[in-house]
C-alpha cells in the first residue's frame, strides 16, 4: 500500500513540474540561451520559487536540529550518569549516521509514508551521533575539582548539573550544534525525493530542464550560503554564551 503511495507521490511531484522549461513570463535572452547565471531570472523568481524553497529548507533544518538536540541531550545525560549506555548509543547512532541519505529517506517511506514525518525522522537521526558525542564530551570535560567544589558547597546533583556542568560543557555543545546544523542543511536538499520541500525542489526542477543552469546555481548556492550563515550565527551565539572562554587570553 505504501508502495502505491510512494509512486503516487513520485507522480505528484512529476506532475508539479512544467514539461516546458520554467523560464518565467519574461524570458530574457540570457535565460533563453541558458547562460551560466541570469540575475533577472533570480530576481523574478525569488518570490514564487526560491524564497518558498529556502523557507521550507530552514524550517526542515530547524525542526530536525531542535528535536535532535532534545533527544541527544537526554541520551547524553543518561550515558553520563550510566556509563554502560554510551557504547550501545554510539553504535546505533553511528549506524544511522552511516546510512546514505538517499537510502534512509526511502527506507522510512515504507513504514511512515512519503511525508514530512519521514523527512524529519531521517534528518533527526543524522543529528544524533554528532550532538550525543559532543554533549557527552563536554560533560566529561568538566574538571573533577570543579565538581568537587560544587559538591563541597552543598549543591545537589541537579544543581551541579544545571549551574556548573552544563554551562562548562556549553562550548562543546555549541560546537556540536554547529556541525549538526550545517550537516542537516546540506542533507535537507535530498528531502525533495520523498517530500516536496526544501531547496532540492528547484534543483530538481532545473535538472529536468536541460539542465537550467541559473536555477541550479541559485538554489545550490542558496543551500551553501544558508549553511555558512547558520554556522557563523552559531559562532556568534557561542561567543555570547561563553564569555569566559575568551577572557583567558589576556
Amino acid at each position: 500500500m505504501a508502495a502505491a503511495a510512494g509512486s503516487i507521490v513520485a507522480s505528484v511531484v512529476a506532475a508539479g513540474e512544467p514539461v516546458i522549461p520554467n523560464y518565467g513570463a519574461q524570458s530574457s535572452s540570457c535565460v533563453v540561451h541558458n547562460h551560466l547565471f541570469c540575475t533577472d531570472w533570480v530576481s523574478h523568481n525569488w518570490g514564487p520559487v526560491l524564497w518558498p524553497a529556502l523557507r521550507g529548507h530552514i524550517l526542515l533544518a530547524l525542526v530536525a536540529v531542535g528535536i535532535g538536540f532534545v533527544i541527544s541531550l537526554a541520551l547524553a545525560l543518561a550515558a553520563y550518569r550510566y556509563g554502560c549506555l554510551e557504547r550501545p548509543t554510539t553504535v546505533i547512532t553511528t549506524i544511522l549516521y552511516t546510512i546514505p541519505s538517499l537510502a534512509l529517506f526511502e527506507l522510512l517511506v515504507a513504514p511512515v509514508g512519503p511525508n514530512v514525518y519521514s523527512a524529519e525522522i531521517a534528518l533527526v537521526s543524522y543529528t544524533l551521533l554528532i550532538l550525543f558525542r559532543n554533549i557527552l564530551t563536554g560533560l566529561r570535560g568538566v574538571p573533577a575539582e570543579v565538581l568537587e567544589a560544587a559538591e563541597g558547597m552543598g549543591m545537589s546533583r541537579r544543581q551541579a548539573l544545571v549551574r556548573v556542568e552544563l554551562p562548562l560543557a556549553l562550548p562543546a555543545i555549541v560546537a556540536g550544534l554547529r556541525i549538526a546544523v550545517v550537516t542537516i542543511i546540506a542533507l535537507a536538499t535530498i528531502v525533495y525525493t520523498i517530500y516536496n520541500a526544501g531547496l532540492g525542489v528547484p534543483i530538481h526542477t532545473a535538472l529536468g530542464e536541460g539542465p537550467f543552469k541559473t536555477e541550479l546555481i541559485a538554489a545550490g548556492g542558496l543551500a551553501i550560503l544558508l549553511a555558512l550563515t547558520a554556522d557563523a550565527l552559531l559562532v556568534l551565539v557561542q561567543r555570547l554564551l561563553t564569555p569566559w572562554t575568551r577572557a583567558r587570553a589576556t
Binding site: 532545473a206 539542465p211 545550490g220 543551500a223 551553501i224 549553511a227
Partner: peptide, 12 residues
Amino acid sequence: GRALPSLAVLAI
C-alpha cells in the same frame, strides 16, 4: 566541506 550539499555541488 560539511556545508556543501552533495546535490548542490553536483548541480553546480
